[in-house]
Amino acid sequence: MNMNYPKFRKSAELFGVICGGLLISMPAIPQALAQESTPKINPCPRIFYEEPHNNQVVVPQGCPPNALTQRLAAQGLLPVPATPSQEQTNLGVGGETPQPGVRVPGPASGDQTQQPSPGAVSTEQPPLLQPRQTPSATIALANGTVNIKLVNDTATNVTFQVIGDTAPRSLAGKSDVTLQGLKAPVTVTFEREDGGQLIVTPQASSEPGNLNVTFNEATNAAQGRSAMRIEPNGSVFLN
């Protein structure tokens, strides 16, 4: 019995060390899991790229540009959208981990491309739109300003806005309104409230500094226009 006692004591001590180590390491496991499960907030949520926000909301600096951000940047109303940060690239649009087949705009050195899977939808943004080379009309400005008469020949309301000058306003069908004393360059956006497309026809008036713009219903999307830009030299571009 006396010879077996040291062996029993050593076994008991070893068992105590093992149990103590387990008790010390156990609190660290839930803490590590809690840290890994904490979600990261993405400043570029997916809703920015879904309708109607895609054509109504300007995304924050650093986010991939949506349709409205691209359109206004191409017109010189916004700075060129910055490259998304590495953290935003890792999160992807909407805050989720990029799925197979999704191409996320990466740093300037190149895009990160993953293998596509059946049914995957690409979130790659199209290149920035460029102003048309040939102006749709040319007017003589009056001391750098222009009066714009909007004529709605459609049967539905048209929402218009002078960017940086007025809030969105509604122009009833078969009516007109005149915007006076707008200083060039000036950008006017417009859309049919029923979601249809607009044919936009700008025409210089016989009086300097006056432009008539007529809205008609378009029969297909290729005819549709949603913005007009008047440059300081009097050139009128449609987009």
Rank of each mutant, 00 (worst) to 15 (best):
L22G: 11
N55F: 07
G76S: 08
G20Y: 12
Q56V: 06
S85E: 06
I41V: 14
R71H: 02
P84W: 01
Q61K: 11
G106V: 03
K40S: 14
A120Y: 02
S37C: 12
P30H: 13
R46F: 08
P100T: 03
A108W: 05
T83D: 05
Q31N: 07
E50G: 06
G16K: 11
L23T: 08
P84T: 02
R103W: 14
N66H: 06
N54H: 07
G92D: 05
K10L: 11
H53N: 12
G62L: 04
A34I: 02
I24W: 05
L78S: 10
P81T: 06
P27H: 08
P118R: 04
I29D: 03
P39F: 09
L68E: 03
G21Q: 07
P30W: 07
C44T: 02
P64G: 02
D111I: 01
P39T: 13
T123S: 03
E50Q: 15
P30M: 12
P84R: 00
I41D: 14
A82R: 06
G106S: 10
V57L: 08
T38S: 11
L68W: 03
T97R: 08
P116N: 06
L22W: 13
Q88N: 08
L91V: 01
K40W: 00
Y49G: 05
C19Q: 07
E51H: 07
N54D: 12
Q70Y: 00
S25Y: 08
G95D: 11
T123I: 11
P81H: 05
F15G: 15
P105W: 05
L33V: 08
N55D: 14
T123F: 14
P52Y: 03
T38D: 08
V102L: 02
A74N: 06
A12F: 09
L91T: 00
A32N: 09
E51S: 15
P52D: 04
V59T: 15
L77D: 10
I24P: 00
C19F: 15
F48N: 14
S25L: 15
S85T: 14
R71I: 01
P107Q: 03
I18H: 02
H53D: 04
R71N: 03
G21C: 13
V80C: 08
Q31L: 14
T97F: 09
